[in-house]
Nucleic acid binder design. Sequence first.
DNA 1: TCAATGCAAGTGTGATCACAAATCAAATAA
DNA 2: TTATTTGATTTGTGATCACACTTGCATTGA
Lengths: 244, 244
Amino acid sequence: MQKATADKSDPIAAQLAPVGRETVQDRVYLELRRALIGGLFEPSQVLTIRGLADALMTSTMPVREALGRLITEKALEALPNRSVRVPPITLERMDDLLRARILIEGEAIALAATRMTPRQITTIESMLGEWDEMRALKHKKDVDREVTLNQAFHFEIYRACGSAVLIPMIESLWLQSGPCIRVAIYAFSDAGEVDTAHYHRTIVKAIAAQDAKGARDALIADISRPFTFLRSKLEAEAKKGQSV
Amino acid sequence: MQKATADKSDPIAAQLAPVGRETVQDRVYLELRRALIGGLFEPSQVLTIRGLADALMTSTMPVREALGRLITEKALEALPNRSVRVPPITLERMDDLLRARILIEGEAIALAATRMTPRQITTIESMLGEWDEMRALKHKKDVDREVTLNQAFHFEIYRACGSAVLIPMIESLWLQSGPCIRVAIYAFSDAGEVDTAHYHRTIVKAIAAQDAKGARDALIADISRPFTFLRSKLEAEAKKGQSV
DNA sequence: TCAATGCAAGTGTGATCACAAATCAAATAA
DNA sequence: TTATTTGATTTGTGATCACACTTGCATTGA
């Protein structure tokens, strides 16, 4: 044996590291991605390279590359000052995002409805139970877990659509709407009960029946909810701000 | 006056440089983008950072950031070797790309058909004439100009859809299908006459009549053409390769 | 008191260096 | 001849530095 490092000719070592070793850059990128989809950054928040580099325990190099990538995905915004921030929420942008999500995620779920295997359907059915578990201990509203579970449910379906082109686009859309969604979910939690499980149940039922149109409609209802809620909230604020 | 450089308080200088100064990184990124959409790189071609840096007369730094951005857009592909290449053409990927383009560009043109101003319609009408000009000197097939003109025509329409979310997605799709399209156009030129102008005329007619459905159908026919052509060519090659 | 000036800290950008991994070619062994 | 190995070159990655620009605050002037 020549080296102690992974050797592709060694089947065991190849299994331990079958793909290219993860780079710091990718780690940082995925970390920021997760934070954005989860809404951990607030809209209009400014991010600095050195600040993130310190927080992520690395140098500025991987961070600036990750930021550049997120800017091209419109997940972040490059200001003329050359500083970068989380895009602010506007009514126009929300409508725009929702329309695109209905169009593309609707298509993806319609495709998935005709292609999901019984095994995959069982998987998303089992996810419904987790919502019930969470409701059982509703005294503690765990927004993080809600976001994670919701994301896992949707992407389990989208992955089944079998399109290597649509899925990254959906990820980009979630990246862009992440900050808005988080704001909406917080507002939801204040306003009343979270009935996401009901919508997801409808989706699963349609998929199990291979009802593409029904699945699309149920999905549209599901993803529209936080947007319409947030929209009415923003309109109320705008009216109040205008009257003052 | 303190400095010889641009000063925002000086209205004249501000007009000369109204937005943020262009960075080398952006220049490189736009350059590579243009090359990809225009199909100047071949499918499966490997790109190296230092090679591009030399070609673009800059250091490796702006190039690696630009490559990273193009990889996140799926315009380029990161191999496990950590090298990057133009994604190869496969039948599945082509069908996937075409479906996504029909979905999203179809929606964009339907929106644009109801929103384009007479002035904008005049602009795309005038573009039709350029095809006739080009046909007049058809002895010299100028693929570059065909690609540029086609792109200008389509994006003049898409810009009118008024969606800041859909347009970048369409750009991403063009970026991904650029290499395929170029191959198809070359095959077209060999096969016979280019009748792009006819399809564009149909599109303009539908838009002028504010016929959203007609515009969408005409667009679908237009963008499907190179894909179906290339598909039959690839299938023929695959069959030949299989028999050998 | 208030506006303008000037300085200092912070920030993004591009270049360069060090290092590890991959690639390729020549040389060696079977 | 063919397969393996060894060494040199190339390549991507991460860190660091230098520079220009921005920002914020204190100082200065009227």
